[in-house]
């Protein structure tokens, strides 16, 4: 990459992770080591490699959901690069509100909250006024073909694909300059996969950086600017 350093949205350096299972005699499960890559504004970097290589764990560390064992995850937040690995919980929450969004594989439903409110919430949290946030949520739910009669209902009873579309709409509703996508298209049909690709293209054009996992090869080929095979970061056990 010869991109200008000012366009760096996310820089991962020497990142390592292992799990210690205290319930199982302190067994150590190495996950990854010496992970390093950069993602620039408007770029989509896809993590590839076999299952179990640590792709999802890397995404969770980027979001501060998993604790990094070593290294740095620098995120451009409010004009400065902030290291997620060293950031206080309150700083991470602020980064998640304004800079770093995450679309997981499954929607974590909240009892009684209607779909449209779930989708509008990241926009409200980022300071968008209520009318504009609801309008944005409507636009996203439309784009993802969720029938309008479902919008005012809590998604607990929705199908897997419908819940996932609510989840994606929520992920795109904020003001985030970096979006982490963990297999967002896994349970979608062709039309909705196309819709997600369209949403990504529109956000890339305005400078949003993406890091994601896409198992569908066609989708991956269309969205990825670069594919990083994370098996090169396989953790090497110290003897």
């Amino acid at each position: 990459m010869t991109a200008h350093p000012d366009t760096i949205a996310l820089a991962v350096e020497d990142l390592g992770k292992s799990f210690t299972l205290h319930m199982h005699g302190g067994t150590r499960l190495p996950v990854v080591s010496q992970v390093g890559f950069e993602v620039h504004a408007g770029e989509c970097v896809v993590l590839g490699g076999p299952s179990g290589a640590g792709k999802s764990s890397i995404l969770k560390m980027l979001y501060g959901n998993y604790l990094a064992g070593s290294g740095h995850i620098r995120v451009r937040h409010g004009g400065a690069l902030v290291d997620i690995v060293e950031a206080e919980p309150r700083a991470i929450l602020d980064i998640r509100r304004m800079t770093l969004g995450y679309v997981s594989q499954f929607l974590r439903v909240i009892p009684r909250v209607p779909a449209i409110e779930i989708v509008a919430e990241p926009a409200l949290a980022a300071g968008v006024d209520r009318a504009a946030a609801l309008e944005r949520a409507s636009g996203l739910l439309h784009a993802l073909n969720l029938p309008e009669r479902l919008w005012r209902l809590p998604p607990a009873t929705f199908s897997g694909g419908e819940q996932q579309r609510v989840n994606i709409a929520r992920g795109f509703a904020g003001e985030h300059s970096i979006l982490i996508l963990d297999e967002p298209t896994a349970s979608l049909d062709a039309a909705n996969r196309e819709a997600v690709i369209g949403l990504m293209a529109a956000r890339k054009a305005t400078g949003t950086a993406f890091v994601g996992i896409f198992h569908d090869e066609e989708v991956r080929a269309r969205v990825a600017d670069r594919i990083i095979d994370v098996s090169v970061f396989a953790a090497r056990e110290a003897a």
Binding site: N65, Y66, L67, I92
Partner: peptide, 12 residues
């Protein structure tokens, strides 16, 4: 720590 971090990746 952060609630989701403590519950999803507990250390102690």
């Amino acid at each position: 720590g952060l609630t989701d971090r403590v519950l999803d990746d507990p250390q102690a």
